[in-house]
Structure formats: structure tokens, C-alpha cells
């Protein structure tokens, strides 16, 4: 659906549990699930869906294009990776980054994607990245992903570099996982089911931002009687499920340099509320910035709960539609 210039897309990573655990679930099945949600734009992550990476076999690319065409859907963006640690014991240098960037740009171009998502490009290589993006006619977005936050120094330095270089090819892809305010109940339930003490989990959550490092927290929880289940929870809460007060001010600094958004989510209730991520605040900042482009829903609840990706995505799309319709009206009123 397109609401005042903001179009909803879906990252096929949302169907990760299905793809990984069901032997017969294919890219075609993922695209069928996409179509059933009435969404046309999607992101494909190469290292998930291709058997060959960083360069897929031409037949694999052909298969994605054919399956897309017959369903009337479009690969909007390609999820690449800087797998620069693939050579054991080797400290990656510029050549390693350029190799991976080039491989992903080629694949993105072959898929007809307008955007390539990259995980990290060193600042001194960004001018070259912009040049390569011109060669391939593909824009490069650097994902701002938890545990990073938009206000972090390294993100702001990237923003300054984008401004300095001045190429429209370079931009950000903020991932809403940066704005988790508190782990969702299903995430906690999984640790409790694995044997974690609910009180110790609460202690970890309450003291996540007390200045303790991950190791110090682990040590303290061990002293309080915690074990392996709590260690796994700590690793998660200091890693991809890092949480804290949402960095909304930092978020607004990136908006003029944003290619599109990963509208990451973990759980939407039946009442269409996201208890983890402040969606109304994020979406109204996007509308106020005048952004026109794609909001890519990305379900990651499969990281800790049995998946019902289609149901969760349907709720998330409706939640976004509700907020966007309201925000668009508000914005119109404020602009008069």
C-alpha cells in the first residue's frame, strides 16, 4: 500500500524461520506469502536465499526474476554483507571490502534492485563506493543496526562523510531494531522456558544501562546464582536485542540521508500495538521529514518464538497504515 508517497514493502528475511527450518519452503513460497499480504516491493538477502554467495549462480538470479515477474512483484533492494572475515586470521583491508561491495553491486544490478543494503563500509572507502554505485546504477545504503544508535559517533561520522562526498548514491537504512525500548514478552518467555530466573532477567533489564559491560554483567549474574540460560539472555540484550530509551533525536538527523527503512519488529499485539518499538514517534518523524520512499517491514520475532510471520506481518502493515494515515493528516494540518 502507498500512503502519501510512503510505500510498504517486506524484507523476505521476515520468513527466515520458514525458509531455514522447512526443507520444502522455497523462494517461490516466500514470494507467494508476500503476494498474499498484497505487497509488491521486497528485499532479498543473498546469503540467505542463494546457494552461492557472494556471487550467486546465474540460474539462481534467473529463478528469482522469473518467480517475481509471474507474481507481479519487484526486488526493490538487495541485502548484501561485508563478509570480510572469510579469510581466517587475515586482517581485512580495502581490497576485501571492495571485493564484497562489487560482488553485491553486480548481483543487485542483475536483480534490477534500485538499492543495495550493506552492513559496513569504512569511511575512507566511501568515495570509491559512490563511484562504484554510479558504475552499476545501484544506490548503496548502510544499515544503522542495533546495538548501534543513530547518535553514535561512528554513525554521525558516516553522515558527515556522506555530506562531504555529496553523492546521492550513498545513504542510510535505519533499522528500527535500534529503537527497542524493552525486550518483548515472547523474548523473555523464551529465556524463562530455557531455565532463566525471571527475577534475574528483570535485574539484567533494569541494569542494562548502568555502565556494566557484558562480561561484568555476566559475572554479577553468576554471583547471583545465574547460569547458562541467563548468559544467553545477556548476550542477546547486549547484542541484536540491545534496548534502551529510543534515540529519536539521532534518528531525525539521518532522515534527509535515508534511502529507505527497515521497519524491524518482533511482536505486534492483536490490538495493533508494538510494545517494544515506538512506532508512532518513528513514523511521524518520517512523515514530518517529507520522506518519500519505502518502509520495509522486517519481522524478526522468529529469533525467539515459533513463527507466525504472515499473521505478524499483516498486523504490522495495518499498524503502519493506521499511524501513517493519522500522521499524514496531522502533518497536513501543521503545514497549513
Amino acid at each position: 500500500m502507498n500512503i502519501d508517497g510512503i510505500e510498504q514493502g517486506i524484507s523476505l528475511y521476515s520468513f527466515n524461520r520458514e525458509f531455514v527450518t522447512l526443507p520444502d519452503y522455497t523462494i517461490e513460497d516466500a514470494l507467494d506469502d508476500l503476494v498474499a499480504l498484497d505487497v509488491q516491493q521486497y528485499e532479498l538477502v543473498g546469503s540467505v536465499f542463494f546457494e552461492h554467495y557472494p556471487r550467486p549462480d546465474p540460474a539462481e538470479v534467473e529463478r528469482v526474476l522469473a518467480a517475481s515477474e509471474v507474481r507481479g512483484v519487484t526486488p526493490f533492494s538487495y541485502g548484501g554483507y561485508m563478509d570480510v572475515g572469510r579469510i581466517t586470521g587475515h586482517d581485512p583491508g580495502p581490497q576485501d571490502y571492495i571485493l564484497d561491495l562489487t560482488a553485491d553491486l553486480r548481483t543487485a544490478r542483475e536483480l534490477g534492485c534500485r538499492y543495495l543494503r550493506e552492513t559496513n563500509i569504512p569511511i575512507d572507502l566511501l568515495p570509491m563506493a559512490a563511484e562504484f554505485a554510479d558504475y552499476y546504477g545501484v544506490n548503496i545504503g548502510i544499515e544503522v543496526h542495533a546495538p548501534s544508535k543513530p547518535s553514535d559517533r561512528h554513525i554521525q561520522e558516516q553522515l558527515e562523510a556522506f555530506e562531504r562526498i555529496g553523492s546521492e548514491r550513498l545513504g542510510f537504512i535505519p533499522d528500527f531494531g535500534c529503537f527497542i525500548e524493552r525486550p518483548a514478552a515472547p523474548a523473555l518467555d523464551r529465556h524463562i522456558a530455557a531455565g532463566a530466573d525471571p527475577e534475574l532477567l528483570e535485574y539484567i533489564i533494569a541494569n542494562r544501562h548502568s555502565g556494566l559491560t557484558e562480561d561484568q554483567m555476566h559475572q554479577r549474574i553468576r554471583e547471583m546464582g545465574g547460569g547458562e540460560a541467563e548468559r544467553v539472555a545477556i548476550a542477546e540484550f547486549f547484542g541484536f536485542l540491545s534496548f534502551g530509551p529510543a534515540d529519536l533525536d539521532g534518528f531525525t538527523t539521518l532522515l534527509d540521508r535515508t534511502h529507505y527503512f527497515h521497519s524491524k519488529f518482533y511482536y505486534v499485539t492483536e490490538e495493533l500495538e508494538d510494545p517494544t518499538i515506538p512506532m508512532p514517534a518513528l513514523l511521524s518523524a518520517i512523515v514530518d521529514s517529507g520522506f518519500q520512499g519505502v518502509l520495509m517491514s522486517e519481522y524478526e520475532g522468529h529469533a525467539f518464538q515459533d513463527s507466525d510471520a504472515p499473521l505478524q506481518l499483516a498486523r504490522h502493515l495495518r499498524l503502519e497504515q493506521q499511524i501513517l494515515s493519522g500522521s499524514a493528516k496531522q502533518h497536513e494540518i501543521r503545514s497549513r
Binding site: R17, T213, D215, E236, F240
Partner: peptide
């Protein structure tokens, strides 16, 4: 310190 050992919930398929 960064995340040390990540373990995803797909252990049944190992």
C-alpha cells in the same frame, strides 16, 4: 564487550 557466543533457536536442525 560485544556479543560473545550467539545461539539461534534452530538447534533442532543441527
Amino acid at each position: 564487550m560485544p556479543t560473545s557466543y550467539m545461539k539461534l533457536p534452530y538447534e533442532d536442525r543441527v
